[in-house]
Design a protein around this nucleic acid. Structure first.
Lengths: 209, 209
DNA sequence: TGTTTAATGTTGATTAATCAACATGTTAGC
DNA sequence: GCTAACATGTTGATTAATCAACATTAAACA
C-alpha cells in the first residue's frame, strides 16, 4: 500500500526537524511547536500523525532499524548462496546507511540518555541478522580448531559495531567506500573461505519440507 | 499578502529541481516530467503555477535578483545616513546571497547560453543600486582630482562583480566572512571618507517638497 | 514508413495540509 | 499570588496537492 507523498514528506520533515533540535537541546525541552516550526508545517499536521514527541522518535528509530536491515542484507539479497568471496566494497551498503543517518547516529551516541539501550539494540541486530539469515554451510576446520557459530557471529557483529562507532565518533573522516574496503580487509584475515545459506534457499526448503 | 506554505514549498522544490537538472543536462532536454520527478511533485502541481519551463526559470531569476537587491541594501537599510566607515564584515550580506544561490551562479556562469546576458544584467544592478539609492554627499576632492559619480560607481560595481566571479569560479574556496573582509580592505584603499544619502532621507525629502 | 514509447496538457474526485480561532493547561517573572 | 506569555490539543472551513485516467502530440527506432 502506497503512502501519499504528502504524508511521507510531512513525516520526513518532522523527523528531520526533531534531529536538528536534538542537536541543540534536550529532548524534554523540545516542544511540539518547536518541531513544527522547524519542519515548516502546521501544528495540526503533527497531531494528524502522532500524539506525542515520543511517537515521532520511535518512528524515526524504526526507520533507522528498517534501513539498517535492508542495507545489511543488500549484498546477499536475492542470492541463493552467498560466500564471503562475493563481498566487494561496492556491494557493502551498511556504511552508506550510517552516512544516510549520520545526524541520527551522532546524536544518539553523544546523547546516550536520549535513547538508552539503543547501542545494545544495534549490536543485537547486527548479531541476529547473520544468525537468522545465514545458515553456515562449511566450517573452516573440523578438528580441534572448530569455531562455534554463535561466538563467531558475535565476534564479527561487535567488530563491525566497533568500526561504525569509531567512524561516527571520528566525524566520518573516511569515505563510505574506504570503510567498506577496510571491512573487507578485516574479513580477509581468515574466515574468507566460509559459505552461508541465504534466506532464499531457506524459504524454499521450508515450503518443500 | 501571505502565500500558502504549500505553494511556497512546491515552487521552491520545482526551482531547486530545475537547478539540479541544469547541472546535468541542457535546458532544452529537461522535460517537465523530469522536473516534477526530481521535485517529487505531481505533474499537475507544476501546471497549477506555470505553463512552460521558461516561467519557472524566470521566476528563479526574479528570486535571485530580489534577494540580491535585499542583501546589497541590508547594510544601509533603515539608516538615514550611511558612510563607508559604517561598513563592517558582518554587515555585508552580498556574499551570503551568492552563497545561498551558489548552485544558480555556478550554473549560469558555466552555461552562459542558458541565460544570455545575465552577467551584464548583474552588473547593471550592481551599478543601479548605489546610483539610485545613495546620493553622494561630500566628494573626496574639489580640485582637479574630483571624480565623476557615474564613473566611480561603475568602477566599484564592476570591481565587486569581479570579486564575485573569482569567488564562484574558484569554487568558493573562501568563506563569506573572509570575502566581506577582503571587500572592506579593497574599499579602504581610498574612498572610505565618502558619505552617501540613503533612500530613507530621499523619500522624506520627496514628501516634504 | 509504421509502431512504439515517452512527454504533454487536462480532467474530476479524493485526501492532506493549512489557517485562524478556540479553550485549556503550564510556566516564568513581577 | 497575579499576570503575561507560551504550549497544548482540538475545531471546521478552505485551499493545495495527489492520483489515476484520459486524449493528444512528439520523438525514437527498427
Amino acid at each position: 500500500m502506497k503512502v501519499d507523498r504528502r504524508i511521507h514528506k510531512s513525516k520526513t520533515a518532522l523527523k528531520s526537524a526533531l534531529l536538528t533540535l536534538m542537536k541543540e537541546k534536550e529532548l524534554r525541552q523540545i516542544t511540539i511547536t518547536d518541531i513544527v516550526k522547524t519542519a515548516d508545517l502546521n501544528r495540526g499536521t503533527f497531531y494528524k500523525h502522532y500524539q506525542i514527541q515520543e511517537d515521532l522518535l520511535h518512528e524515526l528509530v524504526d526507520d533507522v532499524i528498517s534501513d539498517l536491515t535492508k542495507s545489511y542484507r543488500d549484498p546477499y539479497a536475492n542470492k541463493e548462496i552467498f560466500s564471503l568471496h562475493d563481498l566487494t566494497p561496492a556491494s557493502i551498503k551498511i556504511f552508506e546507511h550510517v552516512a544516510r543517518f549520520a545526524d541520527f547516529y551522532q546524536t544518539i551516541i553523544y546523547h546516550e540518555h536520549v535513547l538508552p539501550g539503543f547501542q545494545n539494540k544495534l549490536c543485537d541486530i547486527l548479531k541476529k541478522l547473520p544468525m537468522n539469515d545465514l545458515a553456515q554451510l562449511q566450517k573452516e576446520d573440523r578438528g580441534d580448531n572448530s569455531i562455534e557459530k554463535d561466538l563467531q557471529i558475535s565476534y564479527q557483529a561487535y567488530a563491525l559495531f566497533g568500526m561504525i562507532m569509531e567512524w561516527v565518533k571520528g566525524g566520518f573522516k573516511y569515505s563510505t567506500d574506504y570503510m567498506a574496503d577496510q571491512l573487507i580487509k578485516m574479513l580477509s584475515n581468515r574466515p574468507i573461505s566460509m559459505q552461508y545459506l541465504t534466506p532464499k534457499v531457506m524459504e524454499a526448503s521450508e515450503t518443500t519440507s
